[in-house]
Amino acid sequence: MDRNWNNKAWFLVLPMLVLVAFSAIIPLMTVVNYSVQDTFGNNQFFWAGLEWFEEVLHSNRFWQALGRNLIFSGIILAIEVPLGILIALNMPKKGVGVAVCLVLMSLPLLIPWNVVGTIWQVFGRVDIGLLGYALASLGIDYNYVQDPFDAWVTVVLMDVWHWTSLVVLLCYAGLVSIPDAYYQAAKIDGASRWSVFRFIQLPKMQRVLLIAVLLRFMDSFMIYTEPFVVTGGGPGNSTTFLSIDLVKIAIGQFDLGPAAAMSLIYFLIVLLMSWVFYTVMTNLGQGDQR
């Protein structure tokens, strides 16, 4: 088919292209540049090929951090998605309760990451924190600074507290868009509460759930600020996630080459996992829709 392309249209895209170039493409290319070079200071760089990539992929430290990241994302998805759905299902659909619930749900989302970290760092302290003190006085041995398990519990709890609201709000948006007639028809058809959830609410929430899972996966997989503030990656390396490790290598040890290689691998993993989630979840719904 013959079409006249108006090439002037590209000028309209140009401002966005410039913006994206400065915010994403140029930094990314800089990282690519670092990842294949070595330096001994004095701003002199030598070609290193894929050496850094091999080093990263053969380091136990990288695989352990990646493992911790995957476990962390798995745990918080397993908690936040069902919990978010459950809360959304039980939120009021009309009346003043709606506004109250929505405001309460939005509050954690409005708090900056580092403040969330600080809140929980104080909250969990055995000497002055409400949670730590309460647990200690109940006779539970809780110390997130020394015990890896307690540190994990704290970080997971903090993330659940901070981000379940997001899942709730998305699911709630999906739920209130279901017309009343569906519930009425279900009543007439004699459907059980479970059937209503399984065949009406869940299918209608599927799109927003996809977004919720994607956002929560990507965010939790890249989590940095909160554990950095609360545990600093410790005790030992027990809460050192990829991002924390990356910052240690890049800024702490100033090993730019390995850090750059690691960021690229990290980036590709996030991209790949998001693609897998997206494909699986969209296919789940549309299965044999033709």
Binding site: P179, Y182, A185, D189, G190, F199, P203
Partner: peptide, 30 residues
């Protein structure tokens, strides 16, 4: 449900994820 009434609404109400057969079977299976 106890009144054993059938009602058809103004806008189509279907169970998206079920087949056409299962949609019709739903009130019976319940």
């Amino acid at each position: 449900e106890q009144r054993n009434i059938a009602q058809v609404f103004q806008f189509p109400v279907i169970y998206d994820t079920m087949t056409v057969f299962d949609n019709l079977a739903f009130p019976l299976r319940n």
